[in-house]
Design a protein around this nucleic acid. Structure first.
Lengths: 162, 162
DNA sequence: GAAAATTAGCAAGCACATTGCGCTTTATTT
DNA sequence: AAATAAAGCGCAATGTGCTTGCTAATTTTC
């Protein structure tokens, strides 16, 4: 199984992860200084963390407003029937839409899925909802909320529990 | 103002952003090949995109399961009074908690804030809710949902609208 | 259609990442 | 507790990739 949480992380590994999850642009040289190591063992540790699958990938965060993507919506979706076929079809379809940044199957009586969707404006959102979401088989209830302000928008995990 | 959406992006810029927002680890050399450019102008374009603020930052995505952070919760929170003081205090407090990955002020009658929270397990979640969230002045309603499965978990923006 | 400005490509210099190796430190075993 | 084994750090060298100046070509503007 892939459940190899046997990977032991010491204090320096945690420091490396803490730095990298916020500053992915750091050079190995600067990273090594921040964690109190010389470049070579630092490079080796990062490589090991990648191979262990703890470091999954690197991404670049873009400014949505400057790209004309001003509207972020949170959509709660309920399904009519809770069958595997319904869920599979929904997930396959939703995966085709680049507007969907996040899609989670969640607990709760109100909804089955929570989506985070990014579009230029309300017109485009309306169109997205009508032509894409509500057309998917099995979607029975849809509740939209809109993001007024991004108080916290991070990808960092809490490493204090390790 | 910072509302300089006057930044003109041609086809190559869009290609660069499309690649980088999914593959932040790409070397400039490989990126230049993918977008059909030689290394030097590619490097210059990336630098320009950074200086224009379109590229905000680079981050590293970690595997939460391998780090023993198996529980992700979606929390909808309602406030008793909709005063600026209440909101400011709430946001300041929430910003102190590393478990909170996302916090949005949202529209809707059911809730004022939506939070995405990452913790090791249900025990820790319970503790987090009791000792941290419900202790914040003004929090009146709290509704928790838990992520059963991550269907889509991306940071990529839809660049097709540009 | 001509001039100006922007941008690509080349080459060189430079910085950085990486690998091998000896040494120190930590862990293990008797 | 001593000796041996194992893991990890740092140094130095090599190789790769990034970046900057300059010329040529392309695109844009008047």
């Amino acid at each position: 199984m892939n459940t190899e949480k046997l990977v032991k992380l010491d204090r320096i590994d945690r420091k490396i992860l803490e730095e990298l999850q916020r500053h992915g642009e750091l050079s190995n040289q600067e990273l090594s200084e921040r964690v109190g190591l010389s470049p070579s063992p630092c490079s080796r540790r990062v490589k090991a963390l990648e191979e262990a699958g703890i470091i999954v990938r690197r991404v670049t965060i873009l400014d949505h407003k400057k790209l004309g993507l001003a509207l972020t919506a949170i959509i709660l979706i309920g399904m009519d029937r809770h069958t595997p076929e319904r869920f599979e079809a929904f997930e396959r379809q939703v995966g085709e839409y680049p507007e969907v940044q996040e899609c989670y199957l969640i607990t709760g009586q109100d909804a089955d899925y929570m989506l985070k969707v990014v579009v230029p404006d309300m017109d485009h959102y309306h169109e997205f909802l009508l032509n894409k979401i509500t057309r998917i088989q099995g979607v029975s209830g849809v509740h939209s909320s809109f993001v007024l302000r991004r108080v916290i928008d991070s990808t960092a995990l809490p490493l204090g529990y390790l």
